[in-house]
């Protein structure tokens, strides 16, 4: 036991508790013994009852003695159980106190730890850390922006622009000239006001506009 004794501590409180519990056990044992005794004596009384009747039974000394004994022992048993209850409440309140002590100890340890942690967390340090964190977040945001811009700008945007342009040309390219012709026609003065030489003038103006890009490569 010696080796284990050092592992599991047996305190003075434990020894006192052991004494208390042993007393309780003793009372428990006594009450059981008394119960048994009462049981057997009652059984004896009943057998006596069977053999004797009426007055005979009342006058019988043995029966009287037995009943007296039973009553006396019942009183003892009652006292005994009261004492057991007392001891039990005692044991329980001690156990609860022990738990309370543990609770207080725990609270104290927790408090000490909290103090230690708080002293480690000075306001200045927290501010430094927060600033640094904000800075890093800012950098991160910049990097994010740069990355998303680069991707959209270089490939997607250009491609979209190019595609839109070609689409525009495809759909609107031919019509482009049509309204121009219409516009020019609208701008023309009414036919009745026109003079002879002026009729050809707008036609001449129109023709070089159309033929100019075609002539350029020829000229070059």
């Amino acid at each position: 036991m010696g080796q284990q004794g050092s592992r599991i501590k047996v305190t003075e409180a434990d020894k006192a508790m052991l004494q208390l519990k042993m007393t309780k056990d003793e009372l428990h044992r006594y009450s059981r013994r008394t119960e048994n005794l009462i049981g057997t004596e009652r059984a004896q009384l009943k057998t006596l009852c069977k053999s004797l009747h009426g007055k005979q039974l009342k006058q019988d000394n043995r029966a009287r003695l037995l009943l007296k004994r039973v009553h006396y022992q019942e009183r003892l048993l009652e006292q005994c159980s009261d004492q057991i209850i007392n001891l039990e409440t005692m044991v329980q309140s001690i156990e609860f106190k022990l738990i309370e002590r543990q609770f207080i100890d725990g609270l104290q340890h927790g408090n000490e730890l909290l103090k230690k942690l708080n002293s480690e967390l000075s306001l200045e340090r927290v501010e430094n850390v927060m600033d640094a964190a904000a800075e890093q977040i800012e950098i991160q945001r910049e990097v994010d922006d740069a990355l998303s811009n680069a991707i959209l700008g270089s490939t997607v945007n250009d491609e979209i622009d190019r595609e839109l342009e070609s689409l525009d040309q495809e759909v609107n390219g031919d019509k482009d000239t049509v309204p121009r012709v219409q516009d020019k026609l609208d701008q023309l003065p009414p036919a009745n006001k026109l003079t002879e030489p002026k009729v050809s003038a707008p036609e001449e103006e129109k023709e070089p506009q159309r033929e100019a890009p075609r002539e350029e490569p020829l000229l070059a």
């Binding site: 036991m1 284990q4 004794g5 592992r7 599991i8 047996v10 434990d14 020894k15 052991l18 004494q19 519990k21 042993m22």
Partner: peptide
């Protein structure tokens, strides 16, 4: 190592 025996007057009466 889960228990230790408590003695009283040389007799084991309790356990922890």
């Amino acid at each position: 190592h889960r228990a230790t025996l408590l003695k009283d007057q040389g007799k084991v009466v309790g356990v922890k």
